[in-house]
């Protein structure tokens, strides 16, 4: 739950030299769910994957990471209705179960009504 004096955190996260076979796990929760969270994932091979709010909000999304590949995930959060706080947590787990880099964690609440985050995964070749 965010407070009025909460600290602002960066909205861009990159995980680089990620080993083949790792997993990106995304959790976004909000109660009441007065926010739409959509994610557009682009891969450097031209593939586009859209994750709808129904797939993302209060669900867990897992993305298998394959090498050699580059991924970007644009996260859009649109708030409407009574106030709520979105809790976001994304992390990359290596095949051996250990964390790769730091988790990307933040809270988001209105205003503004539209907010953004971006994650990139650059695999090791």
């Amino acid at each position: 739950m965010a407070t009025a004096a909460a600290t602002t955190v960066p909205s861009v996260q990159r995980w680089i030299l990620v080993p083949d076979g790792s997993t990106l796990t995304i959790k976004a929760t909000a109660d009441p769910p007065n926010v739409r969270v959509t994610i557009v994932m682009l891969k450097d091979n031209g593939e586009v994957t859209n994750f709808s709010s129904a797939q993302v909000l209060n669900q867990t999304v897992t993305v298998p990471i394959r090498s050699p590949r580059l991924y970007t995930l644009a996260v859009r959060m649109e708030f409407a209705g009574a106030a709520t706080t979105l809790h976001f947590d994304a992390r990359v787990t290596r095949p051996d179960g250990t964390l790769h880099g730091s988790p990307f964690r933040f809270d988001a609440t209105r205003p503004p009504s539209v907010q953004h985050a971006q994650m990139s995964v650059f695999t090791a070749v």
């Binding site: 739950m1 600290t7 955190v9 909205s11 861009v12 009574a82 976001f88 947590d89 964690r105 988001a108």
Partner: peptide, 26 residues
């Protein structure tokens, strides 16, 4: 890239105090 995102409240609180609370609205 300017950010409007906030630090997770449970990152700022001691672990024992970190729990999900139900915001019903403001």
């Amino acid at each position: 890239v300017k950010s409007t995102l906030l630090a997770r409240a449970d990152d700022e609180k001691p672990a024992t105090a970190a729990k999900e609370e139900k915001d019903v609205t403001t």
